[in-house]
Design a protein around this nucleic acid. Structure first.
Length: 409
RNA sequence: GGAGGGGUUCCCGAGCGGCCAAAGGGGGCAGACUGUAAAUCUGUUAUCUGACGAUUUCGAUGGUUCGAAUCCAUCCCCCUCCA
């Protein structure tokens, strides 16, 4: 019976905590509500954690509610201590500005901002011009330090140390909610579950300043069955920017998630109807691979578009299943001239990025992790020459899953 | 401001004049087994070299010494207690 967004979100496993379950449910059922989610531009690309937030926004928007995407250009200057055991590195204004601009572009791809169906605001617009004393008198008075210190988000920091600048983060985020409430009638703040304390701060502030009730809802953090945050790869985070994480790598990440996490991810990160997901949930053992394929394709489609998703899928099938085209594989061109003399395999490994250093390249070869057209290569002085190429291409493989194509220019 | 304790390789964390490119764990990578999964086992994990070996690393800069991550000086940063 998932007619109402609340039910949808609940059924799909998004919801972690609610400030007022009944009221929120009623509100979402009967009214068009303006809500917000904040994104602090601490990197130059959104990642999967943000994607989950955007899925929520999209579900809400589909139900007729109006999202405000808040870019934390101002809050990023301070740094949110929540869920952190150490202090964030201070970022320069320039970096934040740069990141914020990137965020804006990416967000526009996922949320429909046309016809006033959603808005995007940047809290640097109001935070940066605040007057310190005024802020303390108007906003600071409403916060009890005693209470703040008992908040979960500061507890872990009590041991490691917490500076005053970070301590203020909560006030700033609370103030954001107040501003959005006053200017745009925003009544609900959503966020990851790590934002719970900060959200409560805002609700409390609105109640005290405006005498109005505001609401908060947090969502499960995307963690795997071991409780670790998902979306991390050996190269760092799994970015939504194709320049930083290629659609193929992105696809492969989901293709390779743990069995235990597939269904959860399908619910959270795709729009597949629950009936279909439930069917996939029936699969056992090997068959789970089918569910993973669906997951990988759907998520990649949402993030990179149908074309890229199909390409990634085809490439994966070509490599792992045999057949299909290799046209979307990362490629390096070699000139006929250099091939004439033979090009050392280790140099190629470094050049293609399959190995970060020559030493690493040798190690890979020693351990039998390097293949040329599926044949292991172990001789360090092996030279790649023209006659190895078939149809002008040669497939270089590192381990079982990383492929690179060489072509003659 | 005073007293004490620290800053070690991707992370945690040992080392406290030579045997240290630095124990152990985590993570990563590769191999075996598999289902492009998990678990497990094995190897590996600064750079250059086919190898011997060479070079740059232990907060920063100088110094002592035949020789320093280890001792000294100054500086920067973090933590704890006192004010």
């Amino acid at each position: 019976m998932a007619n109402n967004v609340y039910e949808i979100l609940k059924e799909r496993g998004f919801i972690a905590q609610l400030t007022h379950e009944e009221e929120i449910k009623r509100l979402l059922e009967n009214e068009k509500v303006t809500f917000y989610i904040g994104f602090d531009p601490t990197a130059d690309s959104l990642h999967v954690g943000h994607f989950l937030q955007m899925m929520v926004m999209a579900h809400m928007q589909r139900a007729g509610h109006k999202p405000i995407a808040l870019i934390g250009g101002g809050t990023a200057m301070v740094g949110d201590p929540s869920g952190r055991t150490d202090m964030r590195r201070m970022m320069t204004r320039e970096t934040i500005k740069y990141n914020a601009d990137k965020f804006k572009v990416q967000l526009s791809k996922f949320i429909d901002f046309s016809n006033d169906r959603a808005m995007m605001v940047d809290n640097s617009d109001w935070l940066l011009k605040l007057n310190y004393v005024e802020f303390l008198r108007d906003i600071g008075v409403h916060f009890s330090v005693n209470r703040m210190l008992t908040a979960e988000c500061f507890k872990s920091r009590m041991e490691k140390g917490l500076t005053f600048i970070e301590f203020n983060y909560m006030l700033m985020q609370s103030y954001d909610f107040l501003v959005l409430n006053q200017n745009y009638g925003c009544r609900i703040q959503l966020g990851g579950d790590d934002q719970w304390s900060n959200i409560l701060g805002g609700i409390e502030l609105i109640r005290r300043v405006e005498g109005k009730e505001a609401y908060g809802m947090t969502f499960t953090l995307l963690t795997n069955s071991e409780g670790k945050k998902m979306g991390k790869t050996e190269k760092g985070a799994l970015w939504l920017d194709a320049e930083k994480t290629s659609p193929y790598d992105f696809y492969q990440y989901w293709r390779n998630v743990d069995d235990a996490d597939v269904i959860k991810c399908l619910k959270l990160l795709t729009f597949l109807p629950m009936t279909e997901i439930n069917k996939l949930a029936e699969l056992k053992n090997e068959q789970i691979n089918e569910a993973k394929k669906v997951l990988a394709y759907e998520v990649t489609k949402l993030v990179h578009g149908e074309d890229e998703a199909s390409k990634a899928k085809q490439l994966a099938e070509a490599l792992f299943g045999g057949g299909g085209s290799t046209s979307n594989m990362p490629t390096t061109e070699l000139s006929a001239d250099e091939l004439a003399g033979g090009v050392n395999i280790i140099d190629i490994l470094v050049r293609t990025g399959l190995a970060p250093s020559k030493g690493e390249g040798r190690r890979l070869m020693q351990q039998g992790g390097i293949y040329l057209d599926e044949n292991p290569v172990t001789a360090f002085d092996f030279a790649i020459t023209r006659d190895l190429f078939k149809d002008n291409e040669l497939i270089l493989k590192k381990g079982k899953k990383t492929y690179h194509k060489l072509i003659i220019k």
